[in-house]
Amino acid sequence: MPYPTLPFPPRSEGWTLTIPELAEVMGEEAFNNPRDHGYGECDPETRHQLRKVRDAPEVHVRIYRALPAGLGEINTGDWITLSRDYARQYAMRDDEAAHDWPIVFADVEARTVLTDGKDLDQYRYAGASLSGLRDHAAGA
């Protein structure tokens, strides 16, 4: 049985801004009210990670991805997020929690996370592919 469509990575055009670069140019007010500055919704975990990077660009950030059970990987070019809650939205398949996909996560160098600077919830992973990641229940 084929898997349902995975969240696809953003096209590479425009996705060249690293999150340390984004965090550097964002003013404090943009962190506090991202929607007012054209960044869309942004949850507290994402804001926390971006602030952490702004203060120390060499730090690692936690990235998340929802995908079918047992795949356990994040590949170069994959769509990712900095928020477990946002990944959980993509993990939901229907009204049955038992059908939800698990979430995998990894801690990576912030410079390997790319953005187009328009949506603080969606990113593209530009580091080396990661495999053997453990599935975590979306609701946990």
Rank of each mutant, 00 (worst) to 15 (best):
A66F: 09
C42P: 03
G127I: 07
T81A: 02
L17K: 13
H48I: 07
R54G: 10
C42M: 14
K52I: 00
T76M: 02
Q89M: 12
P4F: 00
R93G: 08
V104T: 02
H37T: 05
L22T: 11
P9R: 06
P2C: 01
N75M: 06
H99S: 15
H37K: 07
R88W: 10
T112N: 15
F8L: 14
Y123H: 15
Q122R: 13
D78Q: 03
W79V: 01
A56Y: 02
P7A: 01
A98M: 14
V113T: 05
P34T: 07
W101F: 13
G77W: 04
H99M: 00
G139K: 11
A140D: 11
T16E: 13
V25H: 08
T46K: 06
S83V: 03
Y123N: 04
D85C: 05
W101M: 12
D100P: 03
T81Y: 02
Y123R: 00
D100M: 01
R11K: 12
R54V: 04
L133K: 04
D43P: 01
I80K: 02
A137T: 11
R134T: 11
A23P: 11
D36H: 08
P10N: 15
L22D: 05
K118I: 10
E73Y: 01
A128M: 09
E24W: 11
E45H: 08
M92Y: 08
K118C: 11
L82Q: 05
F105A: 05
Y86V: 10
R62H: 07
Q122S: 10
H136T: 14
Q49G: 05
G14V: 09
A30H: 13
E21P: 00
G40M: 04
G14E: 10
G139Y: 15
R88G: 04
R47S: 11
C42R: 03
